[in-house]
Simulated scan of single mutants.
Amino acid sequence: MSIPTSPFEIRQRCRAGQFDAPTPGLAPGFVQANLVVLPYDLAFEFLVFCQRNPKPCPVLDITEVGDPQPKLIAPGADIRTDLPRYRIFRHGEFVEETTDIRPFWRSDLVGFLIGCSFSFENALLDAGLPVRHIEEGKNVPMYETNIDCIPTKRFSAPLVVSMRPLLPNQVVRAVEVTHRYHRTHGSPVHIGSPDAIGIRAIENVDYGDAVTFCEGEVPVFWACGVTTQTAIIRAKPEFAITHAPGHMFVSDLRDEDLTL
């Protein structure tokens, strides 16, 4: 079966159980989003956590209580079925992965759609810059760092970053391209020296897949929405749902809709 190319087709294929792969490189030009689903009694505090940490947690849409439709970024879509894969957490513990969260849905749940760096990768490619995980057909490499987010009473997390290798003479251009996409993580948070942000071995990813480094390349790190999953693990809510890392919600928003 062919790979879906439009946001609507991707969501429909997910809904039909026909697509459960990572989404880097899909639907070029359209915004992809992380998903966090929490009970209503935690929703306001989680929103505060996101507002205090807009680099890793830029909120694009919030669903009404009990309503799975993201009305601002994809009217008619259903966050219970329209992502390739989900993770279920109970009391902060990851318990299972699934392709359909309708059996877990409750009337008190609120969905948060949070910007994703996959949304600026098409702009990097258009600028002639490499995106190695797309070249290699992999998920993006992601790492937990020693950089702490600004906490709330119940939510705290180390910053999680995604990484793309670039030559030193490509880094400035990558910063110029991505800083415009402030609602999908914007410019890099760190360049080179992984050890300086607590990453001991670049080949040992915490999420996603390791990628090849070509001669002379340096790692360039962007804030990542998987930060929210580490916040859930620390907060230990009785129940939560997220996307599986790299398996994003593909919205109807255009990348350029979110640029500065």
Rank of each mutant, 00 (worst) to 15 (best):
L109S: 03
D126V: 13
R90K: 13
V131A: 08
K138A: 12
A127V: 13
G115M: 05
L129C: 08
P68C: 11
P68N: 07
V110A: 05
I114T: 06
N122R: 09
R102C: 14
L129G: 08
S117V: 07
V65P: 12
G111C: 12
D126G: 11
P84K: 01
A123P: 00
G115I: 05
L124T: 04
G76M: 09
D67N: 15
D126P: 02
W105V: 13
R87E: 09
P70D: 06
E64I: 11
I101Y: 00
L125E: 11
I73K: 01
I88S: 03
I79S: 03
P130C: 07
T98I: 10
E96H: 07
E96N: 07
L124K: 00
Y86E: 06
V65E: 13
S119I: 14
I134W: 07
D82C: 13
A74N: 04
A77V: 10
R85F: 02
L113V: 11
F118K: 03
E135Y: 08
I79R: 01
F104V: 05
E136N: 12
V131Y: 04
V95R: 09
P84I: 07
L124H: 00
R132S: 14
R102A: 15
L109Q: 03
L113P: 12
D78W: 06
F94L: 15
V131C: 08
D126F: 00
G76S: 06
D108G: 08
H133Q: 13
W105S: 12
V65S: 11
V65D: 11
R132I: 14
F112Q: 06
S117W: 01
R80M: 13
V95T: 15
D100N: 15
R106Y: 04
P68L: 12
I79N: 01
R106A: 12
G115K: 02
I73A: 05
F112V: 09
G76R: 00
T98K: 03
I114P: 11
E96R: 13
H133D: 11
R102N: 11
A127G: 06
I79V: 15
I88E: 01
G76L: 08
L83I: 04
R90F: 05
V65Q: 14
A123Q: 00
T81A: 09
P130W: 01
D100E: 10
E93T: 15
Y86S: 03
K138Q: 12
R132H: 08
I114R: 00
G128C: 12
E121C: 09
S107V: 07
I101D: 01
G137N: 10
G128R: 10
R85S: 15
A123D: 05
H133S: 13
L83G: 03
Q69S: 13
D67W: 02
H91L: 09
R90P: 01
A127R: 00
L125D: 01
P68I: 10
F112S: 07
T99S: 05
K71M: 12
D78S: 10
E121A: 07
E93W: 09
P130A: 05
P103Y: 00
G115A: 06
L83A: 04
F112P: 12
K71Q: 13
I114M: 07
I73F: 01
I101C: 06
G115V: 06
V95G: 07
S117D: 02
P68W: 12
